[in-house]
Design a protein around this nucleic acid. Structure first.
Length: 373
DNA sequence: AACGCGGGGAG
DNA sequence: CTCCCAGCGTT
């Protein structure tokens, strides 16, 4: 057979003789992106990647995944780690509870299952941090178990492919799509690849705005495409407006050291370090607020002596302006009143502690200002 | 079922 | 700017 006769199997062709699950797999084979966890999909690597990928883009995750795997190459290494070191490797990735649950699950897997991840979704679900998505992803990708994954990409692809008007933010829609996909996943004969292919399609082709239908392997199967409703689907309830907060923090110096506090595990940004501070009350200046908050949180009496930075930062549910005030300690002895722990450290030690993004910007300003002083 | 939780990239 | 993303645990 000459290669010239192989047109029928050309990757670019849409292959109408195949049903959509098979066509999806064929598209994925030629269009998938390279990812570090795809080269060797053993359970541990699949698990770490899937947790990092929760609400986080592939390009963002890749460098974190490489560093994490280099330091914790297997579940035993992770289980033996210090919580603060796990958080430090997670620094900047967000949703820090993921890191704590990952660590907790690793310890549990070592303690109860000899370091081996369970195969069945129901067993995986009992581990910390394993919800429907992660359990299905690990079971299907690492073990070939036929369980559909339904993430944001799949919800969007499914709504368009099946022409569904249901609000994709509703859990009932999520459940219905899972069951509607199950026969297609089984027909594909390759659950792990089917699941990854559907997500990859949502990420590369069936994107939220202006989907690239002309290159879609499912363009002739898609109800939204046929009815010219790709712009209307999926239906999604509008989200609430984000309030804005004004925060002042005190960067307190005493004998060449500065004061940082560790946030409690049950708080937002739990386990990460920060400079003491809080909301600026009406009528207060940032300096007054910083002095008051430092007193309330650390029992220290301080006086303001400059401003390091105004940092703007957006979280999912609110935005914030943080004013970082340079402070000199007048008197008092530190007592942690809201932080899990307070610590005096040299500026050179800041890099050893995990800080949230907004605080990292403050640290940059400190280094810049104190270096030039 | 609704809500809170980070951060960054795309349009 | 706004929207969205390989979700989970709590209430």
């Amino acid at each position: 057979m000459s290669s010239r006769t192989h047109k029928a199997t050309s990757p670019r062709r849409n292959r109408p003789e195949l049903k959509w699950p098979a066509r999806l797999l064929a598209w994925f084979e030629t269009s998938k992106r390279e990812m570090p966890w795809r080269t060797e999909p053993v359970p541990y690597r699949v698990w770490i990647s899937e947790v990092m990928l929760q609400q986080t883009r592939v390009e963002t995750v890749i460098p974190y995944f490489e560093r994490f795997l280099a330091r914790f190459p297997d579940v035993h290494a992770l289980a033996a780690a210090q919580p603060q070191e796990v958080l430090k490797l997670w620094e900047g990735l967000g949703y820090y509870r993921r890191a704590r649950m990952l660590h907790a699950a690793a310890k549990e897997i070592v303690a109860t299952n000899d370091g081996k991840l369970p195969r069945e979704p129901e067993a995986l679900r009992r581990l910390p941090g394993f919800g429907p998505y992660t359990a299905a992803a690990v079971a299907s990708i690492a073990y070939g178990v036929a369980e559909p994954v339904v993430d944001g990409n799949v919800l969007r692809v499914g709504a368009r492919l099946f022409g569904s008007d249901e609000d994709i933010t509703k859990s009932a829609t999520h459940t219905a799509l899972t069951e509607r996909l199950r026969p297609a996943l089984e027909a594909s004969g390759d659950p792990g690849t089917f699941n990854q292919a559907l997500m990859e399609l949502g990420s590369l082709v069936c994107v939220p705005r202006e989907p690239r239908c002309d290159t879609c392997p499912l363009r002739n199967d898609c109800v939204a495409r046929r009815e010219k409703r790709t712009a209307e689907l999926p239906v999604k309830a509008p989200r609430k407006a984000r309030p804005h907060k004004h925060i002042a923090v005190g960067v307190c110096w005493r004998r060449g050291k500065l004061l940082i506090g560790r946030r409690r595990d049950d708080q937002m940004l739990g386990g990460l370090w920060e400079f003491p501070g809080g909301k600026i009350e009406s009528g207060e200046s940032p300096e007054q607020a910083a002095v008051r908050e430092v007193a309330e949180e650390t029992a220290l009496t301080v006086e303001p002596c400059g401003t390091y930075a105004h940092v703007e930062h957006g979280y999912t549910h609110f935005t914030v302006t943080i004013t970082a005030i340079r402070c000199r300690v007048l008197k008092g002895r530190t007592r942690a009143r809201s932080a899990a722990e307070l610590r005096w450290i040299h500026p050179s030690e800041l890099a050893e502690y995990p800080f949230p993004r907004a605080n990292q910007r403050i640290i940059e300003a400190i280094h810049k200002q104190e270096l030039h002083a």
